[in-house]
Design a protein around this nucleic acid. Structure first.
Length: 582
RNA sequence: CGGGGUGUAGCACAGCCUGGUAGUGCGCUCGGUUUGGGACCGAGAGGUCGCAGGUUCGAAUCCUGCCACCCCGACCA
């Protein structure tokens, strides 16, 4: 490609709207342009990167036996009613009507559509396993699109689905995908950790996320350097020192606490209690099977609730904090004086039901302090099992850096920000049950197909690659996904000897099978160097003065070092470097 | 959805408070000089001042409503 004819609108100034590095550089370097919030156009340079990535995705999917499909993005309501996700997806799904008034959606993911093909065509275990995938546009009406290509409303996803007769088959399919994902991200030059994750609205038994560590990320993950434990904070556990309590009184004792509203207040209130001797009581409304239900979540005073953990533990689609009036209506007191003791009776008296779920760290705790469900009053001497008897115990608290690893003896957890670049799920039979995708197994018995689902966001790979690989001058693409292998910079197009040498190199490199960009613009050398650095081509060949000695410069974008190379040796040099990968 | 912010030329911004000619830098065009890390001189082109309504002799500027985008939070197959 000749730069003089190529559309690469680089910007000298940083666009004001771009905060994160990848967004800023993608705009400045002329890879993308914004059309609306979370909607971007790929410019030629950007699309070349996307194509390099999708090619890698194809190769690795095909390698594990994947078969490429292309399904519609437009999808009728009825299909989604079958799986129950027409309502589960809520406002995140783009919905539209056709001219007859029929409901359609723009698919956020394709479990339903793939399952509908499977149920019509697959009858026997002999046709299994199958691994189907596509690389396709997905739509999500994100509440808050942000950070350039990191959270989009329209984006490109490689989504794959596995179909097996039994759990063992799913395990193998899942493992294949996991290995394929490792190869994909390695090839794309991304460092990542594989973490345990919540399955959320996807359902299913197990899931792993592939996360890249970056402060631009939106997720928090906890890892243990010592044993390799890694989990999304929505799933992460930790060990904390056990607390031993005195037996305390035979029954809770109420005492007045005028003006005390918070855990903090009560720690300094005369006759109060330290935070780790208090029970924090939070009122939530959980939507379980479409039914809203009051939930009391109990935690140690110095712990934080993780809402996803709460939703997962309850099997709820959604949870939200109750509002002040709802709380008073339920328990007869304001948010500063709530407690689990007598909550069932309080709720019943108010004509309501409440489910009490307590964090595991409260198990066996005695002689604690908590609200009395009476304004400005608290209770001393509360023993959880004796006085509250929660319906359910679960891990609800947010783990913190420095806490002990749940998996090994000596390790401690580190919590940091990361971006999700891939997610794999063991779906089990959630979709095959609800949608009737069954096969006959070897015993002649009809069983639901066991499914897995595996996604990778193309734009997330682009963003992550830049977040990980850039410097003050611009992007530094990992070789495998760079838009070009090498850029040939002709310092002065008006000098015949230099120009001819550049042209010759351009054709020679192309003949050697390389993607070459020839900077044949009538610009000053400085402008060309700046632009080349900005767009991040890993290698640059500078054709200039030294041509009279039969030499050019080979510039390594990563190391920012250049070496003189004889003209006749350049192609071989570049070829070696390009093949060597990163 | 809650909170904050911004909309003026392709990009970055000033002008608005205190109403009266729409400006600066970069980029763009033409001419000349330059030519290895975003050159210089000269001459130009380019703007429904986000949209609608109102106040006023007169609105980029004041008032009302709406829209869009960005950031924080909530949310997030």
């Amino acid at each position: 490609m000749r730069w003089s004819q190529y559309f690469v609108p680089t910007l000298r100034d940083d666009p004001a709207d771009a905060e994160v590095v990848s967004h800023r550089l993608l705009l400045r370097a002329g890879f993308i342009r914004q059309l609306g919030a979370g909607i971007y156009s790929y410019l030629p340079l950007g699309y070349r990167v996307a194509l390099k990535i999708t090619q890698i995705l194809r190769e690795e999917m095909n390698r594990i036996g994947g078969q490429e499909f292309l399904l519609p993005a437009l999808s009728p309501r009825e299909l989604w009613e079958e799986s129950g996700r027409w309502s589960v997806m809520g406002d995140n799904m783009f919905r539209l009507k056709d001219r007859k008034g029929g409901d359609l959606c723009l698919a956020m993911t394709h479990e339903e559509v793939f399952t509908s093909i499977a149920r019509h065509e697959i009858r026997s275990y002999k046709q299994l396993p199958q691994v189907w995938y596509q690389i396709q546009t997905k739509f999500r009406d994100e509440a808050r699109p942000k950070s350039g290509l990191m959270r989009l409303r329209q984006f490109t996803m490689k989504d794959a689905y596995s179909f097996d007769v039994d759990a063992g088959g799913l395990d193998r399919s899942y493992e294949d995908q996991r290995e394929a994902y490792k190869r994909i991200f390695d090839r794309c030059g991304l460092k990542y950790v594989i973490v345990e994750a919540s399955s959320g609205a996807m359902g299913g038994s197990a899931s792993n996320e592939f996360m890249t560590r970056t402060d631009a990320g939106e997720d928090l993950i906890a890892t243990c350097e010592r044993c390799g434990y890694a989990a999304n904070l929505e799933k992460a556990a930790s060990r904390i020192p056990a607390v031993t309590d005195d037996a305390g009184p035979d029954a809770p004792e109420e005492f007045p606490t005028p003006g005390v509203r918070t855990i903090e207040d009560l720690t300094i209130f005369p006759g109060g209690a330290a935070a780790d001797r208090q029970i924090k009581t939070l009122v939530y409304i959980a939507t379980i099977n479409e039914e809203p239900q009051f939930v009391l979540a109990l935690l140690r005073g110095d712990h934080q609730l993780h809402e996803t953990k709460l939703a997962d533990a309850l099997g709820a689609n959604a949870v939200r904090p109750a509002q002040a009036e709802e709380i008073r209506d339920l328990l007869g007191a304001g948010a500063g004086s709530l407690g689990g003791v007598g909550a069932y009776q309080q709720a019943k008296a108010a004509g309501r039901e409440v489910r009490v779920i307590a964090d595991a760290s409260l198990q066996g705790r005695r002689n604690m302090t908590t609200g009395a469900n009476k304004d400005d009053h608290h209770l001393h001497g509360v023993s959880i099992e004796r006085d509250i008897k929660p319906d359910q115990w679960a891990d609800l608290r947010i783990v913190a850096s420095g806490e002990s690893c749940p998996n090994c003896e000596a390790g401690t957890l580190e919590v940091f920000k990361a971006m999700e670049i891939g997610h794999i799920f063991k779906l089990g039979t959630k979709y095959s049950e609800s949608m009737g995708a069954r096969v006959l197994n070897p015993d002649g018995k009809e069983v639901p197909i066991i499914m897995g689902s595996y996604g990778i966001g193309v734009e997330r790979i682009i963003s992550a690659a830049i977040e990980l690989h850039h410097d003050a001058d611009g992007i530094i693409w990992p070789r495998a996904i760079a838009p070009f292998d090498v850029v040939v910079t002709v310092t002065n197009i008006k000098q015949q000897e230099i120009r001819d040498a550049g042209e010759q190199l351009y054709t020679d490199l192309q003949r050697a099978g390389l993607d070459v960009l020839l900077d044949d613009r009538d610009e000053r050398a400085g402008v060309k160097f700046k632009d080349a650095d900005l767009i991040g081509i890993p290698l640059r060949i500078t054709v200039g003065k030294k041509i009279s000695d039969g030499a050019v410069e080979l510039f390594d974008r990563t190391a920012k070092q250049s070496t003189d190379v004889k003209l006749q040796d350049v192609v071989e040099h570049v070829q070696q470097l390009a093949l060597a990968g990163l």
